[in-house]
Simulated scan of single mutants.
Amino acid sequence: MAKMGSRKHLKRYKAPKNWPIHPKENKWTVKPAAGPHAIEESLSLLIVVRDILGLADNSREAKRIINTGKVLVDGRARKDYKYPVGFMDVVQIPKTEETYRILPDTKGRLTLHPIPKGNDGFKLCKITDKTTIKENKTQLNLHDGRNMIVDESYSVGDVVSLNVPNQEITDNFKFEEGAMVLITGGKHTGEIGKINEVIINKSSNPNTVIVENDKKNEFLTLKDYAFVIGKDEPIISLPGGN
């Protein structure tokens, strides 16, 4: 029994720092299953339902809510309480008509940001890699584990907007100077700004970008940390009314 529990559960004090849970409330928490997001970059659906949204008082109630298909992730009912929910996923509770987007706060913790109607029918996905396959088509590898076959030209680092749950690409936001970005890592995690300059390093050092925030202050961050959220302004609802 102990070995079985160790695969599903994790001691709270060992949980990743980006999980918005208190390490001393209970001894154990639920470990996300392998899936579209890395375990250290996601939350189990049970944690979302019980600990963050407070829709259940205990694990049994949370499992019942999830098992009956009352929670949607990216427009689809997910009935596995260990299902990993991660960055940019859209979580919907049809019964209460509430919708949330998973975003990082300024401390790097994953949070559920309430989003209004009209902003809930899509999600943003970053292109992390691409390959050419048969018939000269392109396969895009997206940050949430999706693979999509397309005819059009896309670049690694760009962000596509997908309808949910249809998963059809409706727009493409290029990673370029002037683009609006959300910082997903480093000391500027959670900040919003505009790309002023992309610095391509010819050495083994990673590429970086200079970002200007709404106070006209500039900061340097890794290119991989900059997630495009719009061309001239953010197309998603953001904490703080941005």
Rank of each mutant, 00 (worst) to 15 (best):
M1P: 01
K8Y: 13
K8P: 15
H9W: 14
K11F: 07
Y13G: 15
K14A: 15
K14M: 15
W19H: 05
W19M: 03
W19K: 07
P20F: 06
K24I: 10
W28P: 07
T29V: 11
T29G: 12
V30P: 08
K31T: 06
P32K: 00
A33M: 06
G35C: 10
P36S: 08
H37E: 08
E41C: 06
L45P: 04
L45C: 02
L46W: 03
R50V: 05
R50G: 07
G54S: 05
L55K: 00
A56H: 09
D57M: 11
D57E: 07
D57C: 09
N58E: 09
E61G: 10
E61C: 11
K63Y: 03
R64P: 00
I66W: 06
T68R: 08
G69V: 04
K70Y: 07
V71R: 01
V73N: 00
D74F: 05
G75F: 04
R76F: 08
K79E: 08
K79G: 01
D80R: 02
D80L: 06
K82T: 01
V85S: 01
M88S: 02
M88A: 08
R101W: 07
L103E: 06
K107S: 12
K107L: 13
G108C: 00
L112A: 08
K117D: 13
D120T: 03
D120N: 09
K123D: 02
K123Q: 12
D129C: 10
I133R: 05
Q139R: 11
H143C: 02
H143P: 09
G145Y: 00
M148P: 05
Y154P: 05
S155R: 11
S155N: 15
V159G: 10
S161L: 15
N166V: 12
Q167D: 13
Q167G: 12
I169C: 15
K174L: 13
G178R: 04
V181G: 02
V181L: 06
L182Y: 02
I183S: 05
I183Q: 08
I183N: 07
G186D: 01
K187M: 11
K194T: 12
S203P: 00
S203T: 03
P206K: 07
V209L: 00
I210A: 09
V211H: 04
D214S: 13
E218I: 13
K223P: 08
D224H: 09
Y225W: 08
A226Y: 02
F227P: 05
I229C: 04
I229A: 01
E233F: 15
I235S: 02
I236L: 14
S237Q: 10
L238N: 06
G241F: 10
G241R: 00
